[in-house]
């Protein structure tokens, strides 16, 4: 791993020493890079160029606000209407609807499938996404046939956050790598709530007490919009919880 993370703009030339040169593994290009045959690699967005020599991969770390579906992403989708075989649901405003097959639920058959009303929300996984087709999502794991926590989200409230923040919340080590402490801090204050984070920048928060839900939502939004550090997050949570009582 190099610690150098230079700023790149679209069309910049990447310094050759930052392109990993492993001969055994294939070079993997992450988001924000374009390969122009034969051997040019060009950034297409503005961000920090990150090179991982061990994995022989490189990508551009950047923030955007428009969610682009990618297979495997966990998202929160809103049902728009039901068709003969699919639900049509929206992943982000003003984009074409994604399809959610009626049978993509745990142990669903034609008769036992869940009946979802327009406007209800589901926690789902993206299975199919490419630029020429509308995305498809599912609420069941293809391999195990179990829901794994996916499915309709009942009650609660949805809060919009930036895509970057949703990604940080979803990181396996969100505390160490993503520098998000806010959820742990809220839990430590004794608030009871459930949470589902969608990669499309939507966070569902459920709980008995609407006050607690609002506090969680505000803590998330203010952490995101105020770009707070770990210490500031703890302070914010203390302040919000104090104001709640």
């Amino acid at each position: 791993m190099t610690t150098e993370r230079p700023l790149v703009l679209p069309g910049d030339t990447i310094p050759p020493h930052l392109i990993p040169s492993s001969t055994t593994k294939p070079l993997r290009l992450g988001p924000g890079l374009r390969h122009l045959p034969p051997s040019d690699i060009i950034p297409v967005v503005a961000g920090q160029l990150i090179t991982n020599h061990q994995k022989n991969s490189m990508w551009v770390e950047y923030n955007n606000n428009r969610y682009l579906p990618t297979p495997g992403d966990l998202i929160i989708a809103q049902i728009h209407r039901s068709g003969p075989d699919f639900y049509y649901c929206s992943l982000s405003p003003y984009t074409p609807h994604a399809t959610l097959p009626h049978l993509s639920f745990e142990s669903a058959t034609k008769k036992t499938r869940p009946q979802l009303q327009p406007g209800s929300i589901v926690y789902a996984r993206v299975v199919l996404a490419n630029k020429h087709m509308d995305p498809e999502v599912e609420c069941v794991s293809q391999s195990t046939g179990k829901s794994d926590g996916l499915g309709e989200l009942k009650g609660g409230m949805v809060f919009d956050v930036s895509l970057q923040f949703a990604r940080r919340l979803l990181m396996a080590k969100s505390r160490e790598e993503g520098k998000v402490e806010v959820l742990e801090a809220l839990g430590a204050e004794g608030l009871a709530f459930e949470i589902a984070v969608g990669r499309n920048g939507r966070v569902w928060v459920g709980g008995e007490d609407p006050k607690a839900v609002v506090v969680v939502g505000r803590a998330l939004k203010e952490t995101d919009e105020g770009r707070l550090g770990v210490e500031e997050q703890r302070k914010l949570v203390r302040r919000l919880v104090k104001g709640m009582k």
Partner: peptide, 17 residues
């Protein structure tokens, strides 16, 4: 492009709160 409408959950929660 349609105007995004809030979900049922959101509507319910806002009213209840």
């Amino acid at each position: 492009p349609r105007e995004a409408e809030p979900s049922l959950n959101e509507k319910q929660f806002v009213l209840q709160a």
